[in-house]
Each structure stands twice: as C-alpha cells, then as structure tokens.
Design a protein around this nucleic acid. Structure first.
Lengths: 190, 190
DNA sequence: TTTGACAAACCGTCCGGCCGGTATAGCTAA
DNA sequence: TTAGCTATACCGGCCGGACGGTTTGTCAAA
C-alpha cells in the first residue's frame, strides 16, 4: 500500500480510513464518531469533513477500500489453486480453512466494517455485493454440479458468521472434519 | 401468543416489545429509539421506561423473547422429523428449506432483533448462544460422522446470513439443488 | 389511602454537519 | 524577481437536533 518503506505517515485520507477502522474494531460500531475518527487520525474534524463530506461518505470509503482488498486477497488465493474442475470453490475452501494470519485479521476488519456499514445503511454494502456476485459467477463456470458450489460457499459463509458473532467456537479437529465433509461434496457424485 | 381471541390490545409490555421489533424491521437498527418505540406501542416514554428501565433492558427483553420463540419453533420442526440417524440435522435442513411462511417471517424478525442487539452489546446475544449450543449438543448425538452435521448447519447459517444481508438472491431451483447437495452429505459415506 | 401503571415535561449530553478562517504551494503576469 | 491570485488541505468552534434517562404528576383499582 505504501510506496515508500520509510514513510511514517500515509496521506491524511488513508490515515482517516485506518483510524475509522481501528475505532470500529476497538469500540464497536457505536464508537465511531467523526470526532473520534479525526482525533485518532491526527486531523481535525474539519479536516476529516474535507475528505469525507459526511459520515455516510466515510463509511462508503471504508466499504470500497475493504471490497477492493477482499477481492484482491481472494484473487491471490484463487491463483494458488491448481486449475481445473472446482477451482473457484476449492479457493473458497482454502480461503476459509487455511488462510494465513494476515488474511484472518483482514477478515475481522472486513467484518467489523461490514456490520458498521449495514447498520448505517444497507445500501452501502453494494460494493461487497458486487464482489460476491463476481465470485458466484465464477463458481457457475466451475464445472461442479448445480448446488454443490453454492452449498460449499454457504457453509463457508456460515462458519464466518458464527465466528463473527461469537456463536460458537470450533476446535481444530472439528474444523478439519467440516472441511473434509465439504470436500466430499466436490468429488463426482456416485 | 394472545390467550383471548378477541383481545384487541395485548398488555403494554407485549405491545412495547412488538413495537420495538416492528421499528427495527421497518427503519433499521438505528431507527429504534425509546420515544419511537413508545409512540408505536401507544404508550408514553415514561410508560415504556416503567416496563424496561433502559434501552439495554428493552433489547434484552426482545432477545429473550426471540430466543424462546426460536427454540420453540425448532422444537416443533424437530418433532415433525422421523426419528433415527441425523434427525436433528434433518430438522435443520427442513427448518431452512421448507419452512412455512410464518417461520420465515419469524426468521426475519429474529434477524433484525439479533443485529440490533449485537450492535448495542454483543453480550446481549447470550440467550441465542445458549439455544444454538443446545442444538449443537443434540447434533453431536445425531449419529452422523464428525463434521457432517456441523457442515450442514454452517451451510444453513450461511444461507440465512446471505438473505439477511441481501448478499444474493437464490432462485428456487438453486435452493433445491443446494438442499440436494447437503442431503448427500447425510448419506453414509462410501 | 396506598400502590401499580402509566403520562408529560424536562434535562444534559453528544453527535453530525456547517462555517469562517488560514497556511502552503503553484501559477501567472508585470 | 516578485507581487498577486487561486486552489488545496486543513483547523477549530459552533449549532441544531435528537436521544437516553429522570422527575413529577395522575388516576383508577384495591
């Protein structure tokens, strides 16, 4: 993201986005106020308003950046998969089950931003919807029987949601078992 | 819910809960204010505060009622399933895929309440966590291979989330295909 | 007369958004 | 070269309104 390794401060716009994200993660959706974001970013409230004319604009900026990051991350996971039948769906499984720590953190950040945006205005999620739409379009050309790819994706979504909302904690053995079960779906059906 | 068929007005407490739910569904999480809930319920703000001493108490009341409804509804679906291997997991599938209209509406209501509560304080979700914990405990005695039941539940959660956040709309054919794929998981593995 | 179940008015706080101001940099023309 | 103009990027304070919560009042039933 930063083109100079020694740059101590990114530009104000990026700093504001980072600050807003950090606040959402630390103090929750309700903790995000323009003043707090400005303070955390080291700019004044007026300065923030210069870059993002409203709270909604700030959230939209957050969402757009997040959608871009997510799509890029998924692209990388996808390219790491061997080509062939079910490639996209295999990528989704890999994305869910053996992501590196960095991706996991990114997921958490994305989730927090996602919920904050949804809270303010569900329409803000449109960029994310587009990303998901593109992934689903890929899946449809994945060479898998109808329903299999979608079932796997739904399961991955569900696991993500469960951890997001802290519904239950999976032990590592359970995670592996779930993955094994889902991979069975990818095999040609008898 | 109402013990008298001709009762035009339930007691104030129930009316307040209903009103709060309706507001959350109609105007979103942010639209729920004590004043609005009181107005919608046909009581004054003071009246509302008499029954629920704070906004948090109101949300907690909403969550508890919701968790009770959900557990009761699931119990009914469960009892409609034939006994034997995978009963609980089959019930989850039925719950997700061929619920009557009433259950579908209940899901929507539950989702809205769920998000509102999470926004205010994630700890409010504890009653729901308990319900889910009980369902998962049942699943573990379901006679299915490890991971299968959890995978199906995750998929159902994912579908629910997708509709909740409006991520994508499934056509009926797709829904059926997903269900078929998930049911394949329940069959004894080769 | 006491009490449960509200009503009505009110208060302090906080937040989003707007405004007037300002320092800096770049351009331009004399 | 430099005085003047303009745009950019930002500061800091203010305001209007909304919202959660408190207090005081009311009134019928017990």
């Amino acid at each position: 993201m930063s083109d100079s390794p020694a740059a101590p401060l990114p530009d104000a716009r990026t700093r504001i986005l980072d600050a807003a994200e950090a606040i959402i993660r630390a103090r929750g959706v309700a903790g995000l106020t323009l003043e707090a974001a400005a303070r955390e970013a080291g700019v004044s409230k007026g300065g923030l308003l210069y870059h993002f004319a409203s709270k909604e604009a700030l959230l939209a900026g957050l969402l757009n950046r997040m959608a871009g990051h997510v799509e890029e991350a998924f692209r990388q996971v996808l390219e790491a998969q061997p080509e062939g039948r079910g490639r996209t769906t295999r990528a989704i499984l890999a994305w869910t089950f053996d992501h590196p720590e960095a991706v996991c953190q990114q997921h958490e950040r994305a989730a927090a931003v996602f919920l904050a945006a949804f809270h303010h205005d569900p329409a803000l999620l449109d960029p994310v919807r587009e990303v998901i739409g593109r992934i689903r379009a890929r899946q449809r050309e994945d060479g898998l029987p109808t329903g299999v790819a979608q079932a796997v994706m739904a399961a991955c979504d569900g696991l993500f949601m469960a951890s997001l909302f802290g519904m239950y904690a999976l032990e590592e053995a359970e995670r592996r078992a779930i993955r094994t079960a889902l991979e069975r779906l990818l095999e040609p059906s008898p």
